Simulated assay, not measured.
Amino acid sequence: MSSKISIPDVFDSNQYEPAERFQRWRERIAPAFSMERPLLTGDEYQAKHETWDLGGMVFARAAQSGGHFLRTDQLRRQSGDHWCVLYLKSGIDVASANQTAGMQESISTARAGDLGFYSLAQTCRGVMREMKALTLYIPRESFAKQARDFDRLSNSIISSPRAIVLGDYLQSLERQVENCSTEDIAALGQATRAMVAACLSPTVDTVKEAETPELWLNRTKAGRYIRENLSNPCLTPQHICYAVGVSRSTLYRMFEATGGVFRYIRQARLHAAHKLLTEEQTARRVGDVAVFVGFTDVSDFSRAFSREFGYSPSQARAYASHGGSGSQVVEFRDPNASLMSWLNRRA
C-alpha cells in the first residue's frame, strides 16, 4: 500500500545571486502577473513561493518584498481563465482592474486578514507591499454553476461572515497540506472546491457539500497526531479526541471509510515499522522495531505485519539488505510542477 508524500514546488530567491533575484521571481510568477519593478533591490529583495497541485486547483504560499505588477491582455490570453482567491497574512495589495466597456475601473486594497477575489480574465495593475499571502487559483470550468456569482465578486475584498470562514479554511489548508499524501491531496482538492462554492456562492446544495471539509481537516489532524505518537502503547481514541478536539462519535465517523480508527492506528504502526526495517542504515532487531512503533507483543506484530505486506519482518529486512527497495513512503514531485504548467493545464 503506497502512501506518497506530496511536496510543493518551491522557489526561493536566496538560491540566486542578489543581482538576479528579482528577475528570477518575475519568471516564477509570470503565469499570473508581470512584475514590473521591485520596491527593494539587491540583497534586500526576498521572495519565497511554494505551490501545490490540488487536482484542478493550485494552492500557493508566498512571502515577498513587493513590487509593481501588471496583468496584460496578452498574458490573460496565454494563461487561461481562472479566478484567484487571496488571503493576505501581512502587508498590502492594491489592485486596479479594467472592467468591461461602459463600467468604471475597479480598485481594491487588501490588508492583513483580508480575503480578496480576483479574475485573471481581466487586465489589471497594482502594487504589492512586503507581504505574505495564501492564494488559491481556481479554473472557471470547475465552477461553471457559480460563475455568475464569482464574476460579481471579481476584484473585491469580501468581508461577509462566510469569507471569514474561507480565510480560516485557507489557513488550515496551509497547515495541513505540508504533510498530506498524494491520496489525501485529491480528497483535499474536493473538500476545498466544496468550501469555496459554499462560502462564495452559498446555496442549500453547496453548504451541505461543504460540511465534508471540516470533517476531513479534523481527520488529517487526527492522522498526524497518530503518526507522531505511534510509540505510545496507550494511544487510544480518548487521547486522540482530546488532542484534536472532537467527540468520540465524530472520531469514529472520521475513520469509518478506512475501516475504523483502531485499524488506522495499526496500519500506521505497521507502515512505520516497514520503513524502519527497510530504510535504516543501522539495523535494529525486529522486536525493538515492534516496541518502537507501539506494539506490546512481538508475535502479534509479526503476524499483523505478514498479513499486511505478504511477507515477514525478517524477510522485509533481508530483501532491503540485498538491494531491494521496500520503502512504502516516498517523496513525490510532479515533474512539471510549475505555476505556468498548472495554469495552462487547467485552461
Score class of each variant (00 low, 15 high):
Ser79Asn: 14
Leu136Asp: 05
Leu54Met: 10
Met103Arg: 10
Met57Ser: 14
Leu54Gly: 06
Arg76His: 04
Asn155Pro: 05
Leu153Asn: 10
Gly80Phe: 02
Phe117Glu: 02
Lys132Glu: 15
Ala121Ile: 00
Glu17Ser: 15
Asp81Gly: 06
Met103Thr: 10
Glu36Pro: 01
Ser106Gly: 04
His68Asp: 11
Gly42Asp: 08
Trp52Gly: 03
Leu120Asp: 02
Thr123Ala: 03
Gly116His: 05
Arg129Ala: 00
Ser142Met: 15
Thr109Lys: 05
Leu70Val: 13
Lys89Ala: 06
Glu27Thr: 04
Thr51Arg: 11
Arg111Ser: 08
Tyr45Leu: 03
His49Thr: 03
His49Phe: 11
Ser108Cys: 11
Arg28Pro: 02
Thr72Val: 09
Asp149Met: 08
Gln122Pro: 08
Phe33Gln: 03
Ala112Gln: 12
Asp114Pro: 08
Gln122Ser: 14
Ala95Met: 08
Leu153His: 11
Arg129Gln: 11
Asp81Lys: 10
His82Pro: 15
Arg77Thr: 07
Ile107Val: 15
Phe33Gly: 00
Ala147Ser: 15
Gln99Tyr: 05
Ser34Tyr: 13
Met57Asn: 06
Leu75Tyr: 01
Tyr137Lys: 07
Ile92Gly: 00
Met57Lys: 10
Gln23Phe: 05
Ala144Phe: 13
Gln64Val: 02
Gln122Thr: 01
Leu40Pro: 03
Asp151Gly: 08
Ser90Asn: 15
Gln74His: 10
Asp81Thr: 11
Ser156Val: 06
Thr41Leu: 01
Ser154Gly: 13
Ser119Val: 08
Leu86Lys: 07
Asn155Lys: 06
Asp149Ile: 02
Asn98Arg: 15
Ala62Lys: 07
Ile92Tyr: 09
Arg71Gly: 07
Arg77Cys: 01
Thr41Gly: 03
Gly55Gln: 01
Pro31Arg: 05
Arg24His: 03
Pro31Asp: 00
Arg140Lys: 12
Arg76Val: 15
Glu141Met: 09
Gly55Thr: 07
Lys48Asn: 07
Asp151Trp: 08
Ala19Lys: 15
Ser142Pro: 02
Arg125Pro: 05
Gly67Ile: 01
Arg71Asn: 03
Ala144Asp: 12
Ala63Asn: 12
Tyr137Asn: 06
Leu153Met: 10
Ile157His: 12
Arg61Lys: 12
Gly66Ser: 05
Pro18Asn: 03
Glu36Tyr: 00
Arg148Val: 13
Arg71Gln: 03
Arg28Glu: 00
Tyr45Trp: 04
Arg152Ala: 11
Val127Phe: 00
Ser156Cys: 09
Arg28Lys: 13
Gln99Trp: 06
His82Met: 03
Tyr137Phe: 15
Arg77Tyr: 07
Gln78Ser: 09
Ala121Met: 07
Arg26Lys: 13
Ser34Arg: 13
Gly66Tyr: 07
Ser154Ile: 11
Leu134Val: 03
Ala144Gln: 14
Arg125Ala: 10
Arg61Glu: 08
Met35Pro: 00
Val58Ala: 15
Ser154Val: 14
Ala95Asp: 08
Glu130Trp: 02
Ala147Lys: 14
Pro31Val: 05
Ser156Asn: 13
Ala144Pro: 10
Leu75Gln: 15
Ala97Ile: 01
Gly67Met: 02
Arg37Gly: 05
Glu44Phe: 13
Ile138Asn: 08
Asp151Val: 06
Tyr87Phe: 14
Gly55Pro: 05
Asp73Thr: 08
Ala97Gln: 10
Thr51Gly: 09
